[in-house]
Simulated scan of single mutants.
Amino acid sequence: MDSTAPAPVIVVSGATGGMGSAVAEELARSGATVVLLGRDAARLERTRAGIDGRTGGVGRLVAYETDINSTASVDATVAAVVAGHGRVDGLVHAAGDGPLAPLDETTDDMWQTTFDGKLMGAVRLTRALTGPMTEAGGGSVVLVSGVFRKDPDPLFPVNSAVNAALAAFAKAVSKDLGRRGIRVNVLDPGAVRTPLWDEIAQAIGDRTGATADEVTAQVAAQTPLGTIADPADVARLAAFLLSPAALHVAGAAITLDGGASAGL
């Protein structure tokens, strides 16, 4: 990072999750001011303190209790961030997940909850941050989606649909926001070793008669690189997309799955 330039201010939603916290830690290590968003104040503080301890105080970490399902909450948080830090340079939207449930097991609430958090959360945050990033001279938005965007799975129809919608949203707004110096991209992880993955592996195992460890081993064996990703892998790619090194990357969807997915 240029020591003469002000530290970038990056907002991370879903900051207490496995991927979101890894992204926040990677950005803090680079010296950024990282704004952690989440709905549980106590969990946010534990995440902030944990990252601060592991990074030795490099960068600056601040937490804002925010409900991304509420436009009023998002707008109030963005106003507070701008008032407190003077600028916003980037967003990583890592919040939102959906159920493991084939179509006949899904409910309207599953669909609505997933779309409201993951898709509409991205809409609310991107819309609210467009003005501050424009005033800062530009910025970068990274929307963490998933490989089901291009390789839909019958066990995850809700995730498959919302991931496709998130990519369509990113592509549409990237054409407009790019003219304001704001790059919008999608990051599509496959299986990632997080607590959420452990729950998914257990749920798959319950259906197939395997243990969670056996499911994880099977998924890794089916991956050309022979392993599944760590949260740090996602974090490094997100940090790259936010950085000047990716200055000409806009409207793209980049897959991080070890070559596992069949979709183009």
Rank of each mutant, 00 (worst) to 15 (best):
V162Q: 08
V142A: 03
R60G: 02
E105I: 08
V141C: 07
P132F: 11
V78H: 12
T114K: 15
T113G: 00
G84Q: 13
P99D: 01
T113K: 04
L61N: 07
A136M: 09
F115I: 01
V82P: 03
A72L: 10
G90P: 04
G139I: 06
A72M: 01
D104Y: 04
G96L: 08
A167L: 08
L155F: 13
T77F: 08
G146H: 11
A122H: 01
T106A: 05
V123F: 15
T106V: 00
L125W: 02
A76N: 10
A80F: 00
T71D: 14
D89Q: 12
L100K: 01
L119V: 14
G86N: 01
I68D: 04
K118M: 05
G121C: 12
P99R: 08
D151M: 03
K150L: 13
D153K: 03
A167D: 14
S73C: 14
D97R: 13
V78E: 10
S160N: 07
R60H: 11
A122D: 07
A63R: 14
D153N: 15
S160T: 04
S145F: 03
Q112A: 13
G138Q: 02
T71H: 10
G121F: 02
P132A: 12
G86W: 05
L61W: 11
L103W: 12
T134Y: 11
T77I: 06
D67W: 14
E135N: 12
